[in-house]
């Protein structure tokens, strides 16, 4: 039995690494059938495997499509495990919830996609709002998802003012202090982050993961 479990978990790790969503889903169900606890699967298989995949991307052993495929596979597994936890009255745990998007009028999203996938790979729940996201959409999503962090990306100097507009909207409705704001992208610097009162700044995708972790420790 133990050998079967070990083998299944090894296969699950491989399926996640390969970004094979269907196989991941099958092996996740099989693991549950074999009696593996959902939380143990998350903590001992999914998070460490995805963390390694994230590191492989940072070392360019793999590239963004492979990283995203692993992220998709992990999402499938997570949905199955969430269901299993709910049926036993337990709750899914994550390092925190991050609502992320590229700000209004900015149509560039590769950098944001990399951040989104890396942050998810390191154990956060990520709600990706896409590109050209209006301030009101950030606000609505942050409330709906009970976000811990609102993450905004802006590539251009001329779309950067939307970061401030978004933070100001949260202030106007007196919800600014309910969330941590982190910002990044080609036009953003630490100086600018200080100017607009963001809680964190990430110069690149790898740093974004560390900023998210650090900000929630405070």
């Amino acid at each position: 039995m133990s050998n079967t479990v070990d083998q299944t978990l090894d296969e699950l790790k491989q399926a996640l690494t390969d970004g094979d969503s269907n196989k991941t889903a099958t092996l996740t169900r099989k693991s549950l059938d074999l009696g593996v606890e959902p939380l143990a699967l998350i903590q001992n298989v999914i998070v460490p495997t995805l963390t390694q995949v994230g590191q492989d991307f940072q070392d360019f052993v793999i590239f963004l499509p492979e990283l995203m495929a692993s992220g998709d596979a992990a999402e499938k597994a997570t949905a199955i495990l969430e269901e299993a936890l709910a049926s036993s009255g337990q709750q899914m745990t994550s390092l925190g919830t991050v609502v992320i998007g590229t700000v209004e009028n900015d149509v560039h999203d590769i950098g944001k996609n990399i951040v989104s996938t890396l942050v998810r790979a390191h154990g956060f729940k990520v709600v990706d709002l896409g590109r050209d996201v209006a301030p009101s959409v950030f606000l609505e999503a942050a409330q709906k998802e009970k976000a811990d962090i609102v993450a905004m990306s802006s590539l251009m100097t001329t779309t950067r003012p939307s970061i401030l507009s978004t933070i100001n909207l949260f202030k106007e409705v007196e919800l600014r202090n309910d969330y941590k704001f982190i910002i990044g992208g080609g036009s953003v610097t630490q100086v600018y982050a200080d100017e607009v009162g963001a809680d964190g700044f990430a110069p690149d995708a790898a740093a974004a993961v560390e900023v998210c972790k650090a900000i929630l420790k405070k």
């Binding site: 209004e104 009028n105 900015d106 251009m156 100097t157 001329t158 779309t159 950067r160 003012p161 939307s162 401030l164």
Partner: peptide
């Protein structure tokens, strides 16, 4: 280079500020 502001105001995309910028 890219102007940071126009007459001291941020140049906001898809707005009159972009035209002025």
């Amino acid at each position: 280079a890219t102007l940071e502001t126009v007459y001291g105001h941020p140049i906001k995309a898809d707005s009159p500020w972009e035209v002025l910028g």
